[in-house]
Write a protein that binds this DNA or RNA. Sequence first.
DNA 1: TCCTTCATGAAAATGATTTCCATTATTAAT
DNA 2: ATTAATAATGGAAATCATTTTCATGAAGGA
Lengths: 157, 157
Amino acid sequence: MPRRNGMGAAWWQGKFKGCGYRITLSREAIIDVLTKANKHLSAEDIYMRVHPKYPNIGLTTIYRTLDILVNIGIIFKFDFGDGRARYELVENTKGLNYHLHLICVNCNRIIDYTDYIDDVIELIDQIEKGLSLKYNFKITNHTIQFYGFCKECAGKE
Amino acid sequence: MPRRNGMGAAWWQGKFKGCGYRITLSREAIIDVLTKANKHLSAEDIYMRVHPKYPNIGLTTIYRTLDILVNIGIIFKFDFGDGRARYELVENTKGLNYHLHLICVNCNRIIDYTDYIDDVIELIDQIEKGLSLKYNFKITNHTIQFYGFCKECAGKE
DNA sequence: TCCTTCATGAAAATGATTTCCATTATTAAT
DNA sequence: ATTAATAATGGAAATCATTTTCATGAAGGA
Ligand SMILES: [Mn+2]
Ligand SMILES: [Mn+2]
Ligand SMILES: [Zn+2]
Ligand SMILES: [Zn+2]
């Protein structure tokens, strides 16, 4: 179900318009897919889900829209090291990219670590504080990913 | 100082031969560059340093040799998110990729965090232990990088 | 030496993402 | 509503790091 606010406008449209972008069918379709999708979609994943219903929306538009969405903070862009970027609604990540990913190197399953994340956030903050002080480096962002074997794939090394 | 063992053979040649690879001029030149280099060289960086002395060594050979070196554990391969891989001697990293990188998004300087790393390693281990237990996921590897502004670039945001 | 295997370089292929460019849709001004 | 200015679009072509292909040149063993 598309989330709508009291005004009948979809939740994201305010921010979108506020940044000077127009609301078009293509963009609605793309955000709709992201909203409904489980997670971690690549540009082509999105293209393939949009295409049956809107065969005239091109990959280029997908990329352009994703760029905008990243820039205005509606989605995050992740690089899991397989050569294609993945995108995920900020909403799903609870607005933090302190949200960690476990990536199975065997089946490529991606597990979100979101529960009890507070302890982890605290540890990361601790690390960042240490690094900042020691190197006089102002950290604005980070990349933290863990690779290995998921429950189903353990023992298949 | 070039590391050599008692036998006069370069430090890496044993491992290299032991894995069934031949020792060639190209490979010596490439490892030599990596040994002398400050750090974090891309394939093309290496190519450009090798080329003046050995103009007949091609980029393809650089890539192939780097692949081998990664596989036998002589170098690490890093992805700093700028679209090209970087390589660094395992020796320089003290044999651990618990070695962290601070990447300046303004000047692209890469700072190694190697001092007092024990505390950080302990924190990361702690995180990994928690993740492993909770998700029954066997972690074999990770990617941890911090982005921001270095001392020289602070205030240029 | 003869032979099998490995190594190499040049050129072509790859594949995700970008750029170009001509066309269309949307908004703003009249 | 017409018109003018601006933004959005899709398809084709360009990018660019890395891989593959393929024909040729070493190196080592019997
Ligand atoms: Mn996620
Ligand atoms: Mn390093
Ligand atoms: Zn798995
Ligand atoms: Zn800097």
